[in-house]
Amino acid sequence: MNKLISSVSPHFRGQRTTQNIMLDVIIALIPAVIASVIFFGLKSLLVLAVCVASCVLSELGFEKLCKKENTVSDLSAAVTGIILALNLPVDVPLWQAALGGIIAIVVVKQLFGGIGQNFANPAATARIILMTAFSGTLTSWAVPQAFNLLPDAVTGATPLSMIAKGETADLPTYLDMFLGNTGGCLGETSALALVIGGVYLLIRGVITWHTPVAFIGTVAVMSLVCGQDALAQVLSGGLMIAAFFMATDYSSTPATKWGKVIFGVGCGLITILIRFWGNFPEGVSFSLLIMNILTPYIEKLTRAKPLTGGAVKK
């Protein structure tokens, strides 16, 4: 008699896999990548390629070295690479971009146990480390030259640095900020492209609305409260990419719904604190890192109470 497979129920599994979730994230990032090419030229693709290659090769190399199972095919390293690239200025020296990938994957992700185990967002942490180490190159922003694939290297200011310096008269129009025609990192300038990607993730059920709404909402409300231009605050800097793609990272943020709300609000508050009163013009990456550290506590605080239905009447 043939041998039948014996296993514990359920015998059906859903369609979702880690790999197809990551693929959805990559698809959702495509509009931002296209926007980066439109505004910063073909060089942005080079930065992207270097970051992705560095992340994937770091993961491959580290796992080989530690004799761990190869997890490159789950695409999470590629996602980290894309998000890291979108968080760098287009004129970043390529070796610095590559170093960022190694930091993100080896230091932040693999040393803590690999996928699902990292307590901090790899891309955000790598960006912070690069920013502190190479503050010159990491804060030199190319002036966007829309539809010029091979633009000349001209540097300018980002809307946030203008606001920080009080040069609000030079601010680009809201439309330019929405489309992404401003100075900044590769993928953070185009709110439109990021919102398209975010909506795709929401529709696909990869993320829920809680984090982005809480994060962006807090920044908007607090800007109003502090008497600042809320729309400019929401549309500029790394807020959009962080709210949709980084504050929704599974392993470093709370899994509970209320936890996501608290996480988003916390990120928003810290962002505002740094933007208005801090030394840096932008505070999104730091807000992510600080809230990442608080994640286990937020989760514990917001864990749903099991439906035990009260005590048994004797």
């Binding site: 999470s76 996928i115 699902g116 599974y250 899994a255």
Partner: peptide, 10 residues
């Protein structure tokens, strides 16, 4: 594959 902490189960 390893848990990615997506929270779907809870």
């Amino acid at each position: 594959t390893p848990c990615i902490n997506c929270g779907a189960c809870l």
